[in-house]
């Protein structure tokens, strides 16, 4: 019997809603959206946590512009508060070192992070996941049983083809899907709406050619068009 499994439910018990940001393909804006969503929910007055579960390629700390912050040790690990959001990432322990993790290692690392992290009572825990239906996503479903999914895509045929499978799998497993977000929208194409009829389209985020320069600067990031679209979505969640 693995005692860590028992403690996970207890660790997550004080969290009202767990929102996993997911999607079929890489590079479609999951991490940026997860970060801006967490910051926005916090600015709207909610208590918010943000968890980076992209264990081989964590990137939320870059988006949040965090350096030299380390969690406090107190009967476990207390995630530090960054820009009003409790933030947990494996990067605290790996720094800039690559950590090549294979399937079983990812599950084990995630189990440890979930078992050891002591969130305070939160309204939302936003969880960033790596692309597709891989280890992290399957473990979110297995261990964070109340997680609701925000599914991201672009209008690219390649992204759509894969996101359909993600949606099918979540549906098959009875995992709640809050809705789909279409990111990097250019023009008024309806392809996403047409391709994904069975799930609500929660919002659209236009391609924002200024966003890249704002990465790492939270205040400017929150003033962007990107953030304005995310706020509309946040209000619907």
């Amino acid at each position: 019997m693995d005692p860590r499994l028992k403690i996970i439910d207890k660790r997550l018990a004080g969290i009202k809603r767990i929102i996993a940001v997911s999607g079929g393909k890489g590079g479609i804006g999951k991490s940026l959206t997860a970060s801006v969503l967490a910051l926005t929910l916090s600015r709207l007055g909610h208590r918010v946590g943000l968890l980076d579960l992209d264990l081989s390629a964590p990137s939320l700390h870059v988006i949040l512009g965090i350096e030299g912050i380390y969690p406090k040790e107190e009967k476990g690990i207390i995630p530090p508060e960054v820009h009003g959001v409790e933030f947990m990432s494996i990067v605290y322990f790996t720094g800039d070192k690559p950590s090549p993790l294979r399937g079983i290692d990812i599950s084990n690392a995630m189990l440890e992070l979930l078992a050891v992290t002591r969130w305070s009572s939160l309204d939302f825990l936003v969880v960033d996941t790596p692309p597709g239906i891989g280890d992290a996503t399957m473990d979110v479903i297995r261990w964070m049983k109340r997680a609701e999914f925000l599914v991201m895509t672009t209008s690219s045929k390649v992204a759509l083809e894969t996101v359909k499978k993600v949606i099918k799998m979540l549906t098959e497993l009875n995992v709640p899907i809050i809705g789909v977000i279409e990111n990097m929208k250019m023009g008024d194409s309806e392809v996403v709406k047409e391709a994904l009829k069975e799930v609500p389209i929660l919002g659209e985020i236009d391609f924002d050619d200024k966003i890249e320069d704002l990465i790492g600067d939270v205040n400017k990031l929150l003033e962007s068009d990107f953030a304005a679209s995310v706020k509309e979505i946040a209000l619907k969640i």
Binding site: L55, T94, S99, P100, R102, A109, E112
Partner: peptide, 20 residues
């Protein structure tokens, strides 16, 4: 100690230096 799996960031094969 905090996250055992991060051993993969710090340990290398003593013989061929692989992290795998």
């Amino acid at each position: 100690h905090f996250a055992p799996e991060v051993a993969h960031a710090y340990i290398r094969c003593p013989s061929c230096k692989s992290p795998d």
